[in-house]
Write a protein that binds this DNA or RNA. Structure first.
Lengths: 234, 234
DNA sequence: CAGTGGTCTAGACCACGGT
DNA sequence: CCGTGGTCTAGACCACTGT
């Protein structure tokens, strides 16, 4: 549970700083010594101190500004890293057999809602996929996805019956940035049917919108089976 | 939307690597040159390349192993950073006035469920708080919290009517690690009453368990008002 | 064993931003 | 202005791990 304290290197500096904060020798909002001072006190190079303090700032423990120095964060913003693995791997990680089934594949003009999500003109032709991801043969995630074929033209030639859109995109579309929204929603009829749960059962919904530069590639709603939890540490 | 490409420094190296992946010059699973080779080719020190590749590995774009070298991640694990600010700040960030109301404060023996969550003996005396966080006077989050007073004895002297437990703990308890679970649940009766929504309405639940070393400090369930979304980028 | 990443060091210059 | 963090460099040694 607890990480062992490092005895050497930048991690030792990091842990020493953490110890001083934990023991309230350094209080929230308080300025801590400069990198050079700490380096002298801890008998290491300033570069090493810099590395340690940089990591602490990244995790929200310290706030740093040039000239102003470093302070213990007054209101430490906790940050949790949420991993978003392939569903194939997520299922494998819980020791279940992964399965995938395409439910529907159509080409449709964008309705107003999805046009707004993807920031494109209403009526633009989009590829829409509905699919089900299975764990040990039981429904795990219901997926409702839109793809803009103008950004990834090759997608129009794929039937997505044998490979999930996500895996195909990872292998065939370049790296991209995206946004993630997490919400609790009543199961929409199609999701309830696919997942075999009651309509309006509370489902965890992850909506991912992925961009390639300034063009939206895809928007996907992933409805998890009831009672699913996302877990993370901070 | 798109970050400008840096022209110098480790960020330039990072961006050059990203460019080669985006243009599919380097394909998923492919080994990329060693740090030393890249340093030579890009005319910079190996340290600089190391910094760039380290950041890329942290964000899941590369996989690195000693001796084996660096490869483009075959199945890039997307990672989303979820910020967990103080509710006071979260509410302020949406431009609303923050409010806080303590609903209940009791001392109870741990029931089986919470004892398991906090990894302590059933029946241990715990502080239990119920509270409501408000945005512009409307319910925003219903909080149901357990605190182990043996870890933070001073908490028994606080009435938590004027300050939320979270803010008090940040100011009065040392830094700590924790776990976060996110789920969609039907509103429990008490939450529905406090939030003014239907019983069994789908609510987003964030359960945070916080540890100080190997001792659990507190476990809190935060029920967000219906239709709330967590947002993040990746 | 040997190649590769991980890190430390000492010194240097620069960019930002309080004062 | 000038103190502070941000970064680069060249060189070195170490730790891990594939062969």
């Amino acid at each position: 549970m607890v990480n062992a304290r490092a005895r050497t290197g930048w991690q030792a500096v990091r842990d020493e700083v953490l110890r001083r904060i934990e023991t309230r020798r350094w209080l929230p909002g308080m300025a801590i010594p400069t990198e050079a001072e700490l380096a002298g006190e801890l008998h290491c190079a300033r570069t090493t101190v810099n590395r340690a303090l940089r990591e602490l700032a990244r995790s929200g423990v310290l706030e740093r500004r040039r000239k102003a120095g470093s302070r213990v964060a007054l209101h430490p913003v906790r940050r949790a890293m949420l991993d978003i693995p392939l569903l194939r791997h997520e299922v494998a990680a819980i020791g279940a057999a992964y399965g995938y089934r395409l439910l529907a594949r159509q080409t449709l003009p964008a309705n107003r809602i999805i046009a707004r999500q993807l920031d494109l003109a209403q009526g633009a032709p989009l590829l829409r996929l509905r699919a089900l991801h299975l764990a040990n043969g039981r429904p795990y995630v219901y997926e409702d996805r839109w793809i803009d074929p103008r950004v990834t033209p090759a997608a129009t030639e794929v039937d997505f019956a044998g490979i999930s859109a996500n895996e195909w995109l990872i292998a065939n579309a370049p790296l991209s940035t995206g946004k993630l929204a997490i919400a609790a929603v009543p199961a929409p009829p199609a999701a309830a049917r696919a997942l075999g749960c009651k309509r309006s059962a509370p489902l965890l919904l992850l909506r991912r919108t992925t961009w390639l530069g300034d063009r939206a590639v895809t928007c996907v709603d992933m409805y998890y089976t009831p009672n699913h939890q996302l877990q993370s540490e901070f």
